[in-house]
Amino acid sequence: MTVGRALFQLLVFPGLLYAVPVAWLMLWMERKLTARLQGRIGPPFYQPFFDFVKLLAKRPLPRPPLQALAMSALPVLAVAGTLGALALLPVFPHSGGFTGDLVLLVALLEIPPLCAVLAGFVSRSIYGELGATREAVLSIAYSLPFLAALVALAAAANSLSLSVISQQAMWQVRLPALLALALCLPVKLRVNPFSVANAEQEIYAGATTEFEGPRLALWELAHGLEWVALTGLWAVLAFPAANAAWPLRAVVFVAISLALVLVLAAVAAATARLKLAQAARVYWLWGSALGVLAMVVAVVWP
């Protein structure tokens, strides 16, 4: 992978230039579809962008220097980590990636939840702490199926390179792995029925309760980018056609990502929020079952 290629992926596609507008688009699509399913009009498409600008324009609260530093650095780190993960997505498999980028991707995707946990504790709010605790408990619960699915894919493709995995993993492994990953998406994106870590009626906004103005704007951006990265990862893994021309690949990648957003929004609109123990149980039980199934198939299948 050349430097120019890496820069293009980080800054243009599927990185910054693509991801930020699409993040806002996805946030809007989620809100709009939820509204329509609830019989409301819903916001206009520029609403997430306006929300972002409005939050940016607000004056941050004065805080003790160390806390202020931590509370500003954590959302920046979350944004940077997600952008890095996005840059690794092998939308055009023949022209990028390196062996072991799967490990880097997993590590980068874990940065936003980790930052959120830290943010919850650093903000010194009881609700932030509760949110952070819930986030931590959930991340332990969903990490098992999430990692198991990725490991199964890697084992099936016999490679740690994302582009190889996306091309060569067998469908017998890919199917349960994709299901396990899809099951992890709502909890990673904190939407119903697994919106436990940011359960408004219980603990306000959870870990980000004490964040305000530009700091909150960055969290919102990080959240939007997580949508792009996670749906993008799923889209890349779900569409292996190696021979397709690059415009087709790009279009299919975007289409699958957006369709996934709609599905997640519809599921969120049709469910109530589960409790922490119930949500964790779903992942330990069903998530792990799918992950383990994928692993077993990957190892046993000739």
Binding site: T34, Q38, N192, A199, Q201, A269, A272, R273
Partner: peptide, 16 residues
């Protein structure tokens, strides 16, 4: 009741 269990859709239906 629907709202506090995070079930926005049911909340909207009841209020409609």
């Amino acid at each position: 009741a629907a709202e506090v269990i995070g079930f926005q859709t049911l909340f909207m239906t009841c209020f409609a």
